[in-house]
Simulated scan of single mutants.
Amino acid sequence: MTIYESDLPGVGKKFEVELEGDERLVIVTHNTGKREVYFKANEDADSDKLFELPDRLARTVGTILEGAYFQPVKSDQVETMLSDETFIEWFNVADDSELVGQTLGEANIREEIGVSIVAIQRDGDVIAPPGPETAIEAGDTLVVVGDQEDCTEFEALLGSDDRQ
């Protein structure tokens, strides 16, 4: 998949995403935050406007599309890229994880591994941000921020196949 990015002086940025064949999805992000979404049948075709979204709604739709609200198919990994090197990842805590029963302060994860636990999903609730006194429980989903290498190291600490 190729994404073409171009500046639109005084307007914002335009992104063209190659789809199947020669089709393209065109997204114009205005400096005001508004997004316009177009479809092009091929590289040389005129764009047909599909819809327009204000900034806040566009961000909500984006998080739905990336799977932050709902994962229809269990996958080995859920990650959101914040930058080229920083990710948000979700990890499930197994019953036999060595972290079960430890507080975040006791586990010392940020200092030892380099990732930060920014939220914990537990029994339909979200603890955000969790404090150092927050205990890790079996069945928790830990929302972690870090670079790919540190996230992989954290996954190894939890045990195999614990990413959601």
Rank of each mutant, 00 (worst) to 15 (best):
residue 113 I to G: 04
residue 19 L to W: 04
residue 57 L to R: 12
residue 59 R to E: 05
residue 106 E to M: 07
residue 9 P to T: 08
residue 74 K to P: 00
residue 36 E to D: 11
residue 65 L to A: 13
residue 71 Q to D: 10
residue 127 I to F: 10
residue 75 S to W: 06
residue 142 L to I: 03
residue 55 D to I: 06
residue 2 T to E: 13
residue 110 R to D: 07
residue 66 E to W: 07
residue 4 Y to T: 11
residue 142 L to S: 02
residue 12 G to H: 04
residue 44 D to N: 09
residue 141 T to K: 12
residue 141 T to A: 15
residue 14 K to V: 12
residue 111 E to V: 07
residue 63 T to H: 08
residue 160 S to W: 01
residue 149 E to F: 11
residue 18 E to D: 12
residue 4 Y to K: 12
residue 156 A to T: 13
residue 163 R to G: 15
residue 94 A to T: 05
residue 31 N to P: 06
residue 4 Y to F: 12
residue 82 L to K: 01
residue 104 L to I: 07
residue 40 K to Y: 12
residue 153 E to W: 01
residue 105 G to L: 13
residue 57 L to F: 10
residue 44 D to C: 04
residue 110 R to W: 05
residue 61 V to A: 09
residue 71 Q to M: 13
residue 129 P to G: 06
residue 45 A to H: 13
residue 162 D to L: 13
residue 107 A to M: 11
residue 28 V to M: 00
residue 121 Q to W: 11
residue 25 L to E: 10
residue 136 I to E: 01
residue 8 L to V: 03
residue 14 K to Y: 00
residue 110 R to T: 15
residue 131 G to S: 15
residue 45 A to L: 11
residue 129 P to L: 11
residue 112 E to T: 09
residue 42 N to K: 14
residue 39 F to M: 14
residue 26 V to F: 02
residue 111 E to W: 11
residue 51 F to C: 04
residue 64 I to S: 03
residue 118 V to Q: 03
residue 30 H to M: 10
residue 74 K to N: 13
residue 153 E to C: 03
residue 36 E to T: 03
residue 86 T to D: 06
residue 164 Q to I: 12
residue 31 N to A: 09
residue 29 T to S: 08
residue 147 D to E: 15
residue 34 K to V: 05
residue 55 D to Q: 11
residue 87 F to I: 09
residue 39 F to W: 04
residue 131 G to P: 08
residue 99 L to T: 02
residue 160 S to H: 10
residue 81 M to G: 05
residue 36 E to K: 13
residue 64 I to K: 04
residue 117 I to A: 04
residue 163 R to P: 07
residue 101 G to Q: 10
residue 124 G to S: 07
residue 163 R to C: 08
residue 6 S to T: 14
residue 19 L to F: 07
